[in-house]
């Protein structure tokens, strides 16, 4: 018990749990989102401790960063339409019907029992049990990349990854569909200092994002983390109003959304010749093909995440009117 790392681990785990509780119980919604982002970052830190730097990067960039931005944007919109924008704190945005304390308590006890059961099951599971370690180690030389996580994502389980990009595509189609004709809340305006900061940060962010993508073949990083960082560029562009989506850009946007899915799926299909099956890249071209797929997927992820942040489809301004049919 004298190992300082164990003390660190315990403290971090307790902090994560405490932040989760705090985020759910704090009354102010803005504080809730801030606590949640901190929670996400600390979880990422814990995953670094568990030697999962790729996951930590993805969680910090997407799980905490992009999700936090989405939540803040939504909170801003909700407070705008409910007319509580100027008020100091927002205690909830939906009209609440009070729930009897007994019901909440019963639910909490129920969930507590489930959690207890899961904890017992977890303690009973074999620690550091069987896994894919040996299989991956054996197959890595034939994968075309050097970093195991990238090998799993883009070769061994590429089908999952393709479908994950499909999920993103489905999300952006659904969001455009849902938000058609919603009058937009005026975007939060950044102060002058922030404008300057954003201009400075933009090129640096682009460099970091591209680097993450490039390095993914042999070190932690890759399409999703790189895409998320590049999406941050999009967010900054949108927030500083350096870029305002126009209806005429819809075609390009649609193209960018489907680019990753389309290229990924096409490559997966086209390699199936000469006795190979779908997704079976010929070894001599594997690295090139994987880099091609990663590049296209990164562009799609960046544009899609930025579009998810922006929300509604850019349409010709019909102030307040709906084109609902």
């Amino acid at each position: 018990m004298t190992d300082p790392l164990v003390i660190f681990d315990v403290a971090l785990a307790l902090a994560i749990v405490a932040l989760a509780v705090a985020a759910l119980s704090v009354r102010d919604l803005f504080a809730m989102i801030v606590l949640f982002v901190v929670f996400g970052l600390l979880s990422a830190l814990a995953w670094v401790r568990l030697s999962a730097p790729d996951v930590a990067l993805a969680e910090a960039a997407i799980g905490a960063g992009v999700t936090g931005a989405l939540l803040l944007k939504t909170l801003h919109h909700l407070r705008y339409v409910s007319g509580t924008l100027g008020q100091q704190a927002a205690y909830g945005v939906t009209p609440l019907t009070p729930v009897p304390i007994g019901v909440t308590l019963a639910n909490a006890i129920f969930c507590g029992l489930i959690t207890l059961g899961l904890a017992v099951a977890y303690l009973g599971a074999p620690a550091a049990g069987p896994g894919f370690d040996a299989l991956v180690a054996e197959a890595m030389p034939r994968s075309g990349v050097d970093h195991p996580v990238t090998g799993v994502l883009l070769n061994f389980r590429a089908y999952d990854t393709l479908m994950e990009v499909v999920v993103l595509l489905a999300a952006v189609v659904a969001v455009w569909q849902i938000e058609r004709g919603v009058s937009d809340a005026p975007a939060p305006v950044l102060g002058e200092v922030w404008q300057g900061f954003a201009r400075l940060a933009l090129p640096a962010t682009v460099v970091v994002g591209t680097y993450l993508l490039w390095v993914g073949a042999e070190a932690p990083g890759g399409a999703f983390q790189g895409g998320a960082v590049l999406a941050a560029v999009g967010l900054l562009l949108l927030l500083t109003r350096a870029y305002v989506p126009q209806p005429t850009h819809r075609g390009i946007a649609r193209g960018a959304f489907v680019l990753g899915t389309g290229v990924f799926a096409l490559v997966a299909l086209l390699v199936a010749s000469g006795g190979r099956v779908a997704f079976e890249y010929p070894l001599e071209h594997a690295k090139t093909l994987i880099l091609l797929i990663e590049g296209m997927v990164t562009i799609s992820i960046a544009v899609t995440l930025a579009a998810l942040f922006h929300g509604r489809e850019p349409v010709a301004q019909t102030k307040g009117g709906r084109d609902d049919t």
């Binding site: 894919f132 299989l135 991956v136 197959a139 070769n155 061994f156 389980r157 590429a158 089908y159 999952d160 190979r276 099956v277 779908a278 997704f279 079976e280 890249y281």
Partner: peptide
């Protein structure tokens, strides 16, 4: 059909 030619459990 073993996608990617890997076969389960490594592949899908």
């Amino acid at each position: 059909l073993p996608l990617g030619g890997w076969g389960a459990p490594l592949g899908i």
